[in-house]
Amino acid sequence: MNCDWVRFAYRALPLPAWQAFLLERHIDRCPRCQAQALGDAAILSLGVTPAGLRNEPPLRPFNSESGRSRGLRPAWRYAFGFFLAAAILGGAFAIWRSVPTETLPQGIVTVSETEDVARVFAVLGARIGDAPARPVIFAPGQPGMTIVWFEKNQN
């Protein structure tokens, strides 16, 4: 068999398996073909071997602290997340429940009008919930507008 042809055919993929097998057998055993290729010993001298890395500092698979894993396993992470979310929702609900609902101010407002010169009104009393409230009257200066609101007494 012509060695040049064998080497050409061997590199020219794809080949049927039986042809590749025959060509490999030839290359493995033919001294001329083997002489074209560099042997293992020579190749080993070209590169780095593990024995030559004795003084290399060890690799660090994890840059964080050594020791047993401090992280939680995934199932526990989900459970932790669930309980954390439940605690946050529970806290928010408790806060919402503790805030008293606003009650509409109750009071009697009487307005007496005289002709078209002035509009006079008086607040006789006001309560927010069960507690007396303080009326505040504000006239923004806009014709025909007076704002009245009630505040809780800050005692």
């Binding site: 590169g47 780095v48 071997t49 593990p50 030559g52 890395l53 004795r54 290399e56 060890p58 690799l59 698979p61 994890f62 050594s66 020791g67 047993r68 894993s69 992280g71 396993r73």
Partner: peptide, 24 residues
């Protein structure tokens, strides 16, 4: 199971081979 010590022990015997391969 996530034991990093065990993994470090597992690879310590082979890391020079791995490094040599990557270097080459």
């Amino acid at each position: 199971l996530g034991d990093r010590d065990a993994f470090a022990g597992l690879v310590s015997a082979h890391e020079k081979k791995l490094l040599a391969l990557c270097w080459n």
